[in-house]
């Protein structure tokens, strides 16, 4: 397999598969649960766990993408950015496939959240590097802190607590994921 060394360099077998397995397991087991968390605008607020389960996966994706040769890959003849984009798309795509097979709304909502949070992280990565892994965590915290309405009818800007059937959330996730993937493909990470 010609991209074998790239896969080893990115630690796809260990890091990405582990992150995916943990997130999927959480999604299937506790994804539909709700916990009570303190909100800045409405006292205690019920938060669905589908909001949080993609975090291990997006963190694993960041570890994998940053396991690279700075400079050398930027001056590579092969389009490594394309392979990286494929890795992220295939990982998130697998989650969507599982959601389709299982028919579970919870798994579908968490797959959408994975796409949304991965897109956010990838969008921030060219500017802040590895620290972009904190952006999905920050978004989740902002939602917990400022969302005034609990699921299944949260404020529309929050995206994460929305049910799988919410079209605007699906659209936001698709757009952000698309922009994030484009940044992986076309923006150099070596401006430092």
């Amino acid at each position: 397999m010609s991209m074998w060394w790239w896969m080893k360099a990115r630690r796809t077998h260990s890091v990405v598969l582990s992150g995916l397995a943990i997130s999927l397991l959480l999604s299937l087991t506790i994804g539909s649960e709700e916990v009570e968390l303190p909100s800045l605008v409405s006292g205690m607020q019920q938060a669905v766990l589908t909001m949080f389960v993609p975090i291990p996966l997006v963190a694993a994706l960041m570890v994998s993408l940053e396991s690279r040769l700075p400079g050398i890959e930027a001056s590579s003849v092969r389009r490594v950015g394309g392979w990286d984009a494929l890795l992220v798309s295939a990982t998130v795509g697998f989650w969507f496939a599982l959601a389709a097979v299982s028919g579970s709304g919870v798994v579908a909502a968490s797959a959408r959240n994975a796409a949304f949070l991965a897109g956010l992280m990838l969008l921030a990565r060219p500017w802040v590097g590895e620290a972009a892994v904190m952006v999905p965590v920050a978004w989740t915290m902002v939602v917990v802190a400022f969302n005034r309405r609990p699921a299944p009818d949260p404020e529309p800007w929050t995206i994460l607590p929305e049910p799988a059937s919410a079209p605007h959330a699906a659209l936001a996730a698709a757009v952000l994921f698309g922009i994030g993937i484009s940044s992986v493909m076309f923006i150099s990470k070596d401006k430092s």
């Binding site: 360099a9 630690r11 396991s67 040769l69 050398i72 590579s76």
Partner: peptide, 22 residues
């Protein structure tokens, strides 16, 4: 940068592959 998952030879070969070698 060290790559924990690559041996010395794999590292060098990976760079060669990145530069377009088979």
């Amino acid at each position: 940068v060290a790559m924990p998952s690559l041996s010395s030879r794999e590292y060098v070969a990976y760079v060669g592959w990145l530069k377009g070698m088979s």
